[in-house]
Amino acid sequence: MHHEAPIVSFLGLNFNLANILMITIASVIVFIIAVLSTRTLAMRPTGLQNFFEWVMDFVKGIIDSTMDWKTGGRFHVLGITLMMYIFVSNMLGLPFSIVYDNTLWWKSPTADPVVTLTLATMVVGLSHYYGVKLKGTKEYGKEFFRPFWFMFPIKIIEEFANTLTLGLRLYGNIYAGEILLALIAGGLATGFGGHLAAIIPMLAWQGFSLFIGAIQAFIFTMLTMVYLAHKVSTDH
């Protein structure tokens, strides 16, 4: 069950080549889908343009539900990209995983805590950046002592807790899904009868993972907007 990771040290940094491969693949897929679907834009939308306009409206709805559009509009692109990227990443590990020479190469990039925590840290970092930018340093600092001054330690802890939960929620869901898929495929599907027996739970769990992957992409985007709104809006 346990596979080695292809780790390479370069300039004092450890690179997991599997992660780098999958991140690149996920990014390229998202880019290709997005560009292909928006290549022929028309006033009367058809096909994929319709779908992406729906996605845009969906993300707009998420942003609208957390902050007003005047401040939230600038996060629209971030929200769509995050959602698309995480959704595609979640889907990548579903159909199969590739193990070569006892090294795991093909998986969901989001099944690695490093990747999800990076995204989470980026989001929280962005929320602080925009908090300072939109409200000014003073107002941003004051926010840590509201509603009472003694809430300050809790507020500080909250920032780290937010980062951790945001990243680990995504990681946990996807990683667990892949583990179970690997268990069903590797543990149950031995021999002809085992393969037959594995088909049903495999189908069921893949369908469920599809659902979870979509839900997690939505939740990640939603929480991103909530954290951003928490920092940039003046009244909440």
Binding site: A5, L13, N16, Y85, P109, P113, L119, M122
Partner: peptide
């Protein structure tokens, strides 16, 4: 999945996401 700290992955993920964005 990785032994030790994957600093490279973090940087790569960040860069990849920003470029994608």
């Amino acid at each position: 999945a990785g032994a030790g700290f994957n600093g490279g992955d973090i940087l790569f993920q960040l860069a990849a996401f920003l470029i994608l964005l």
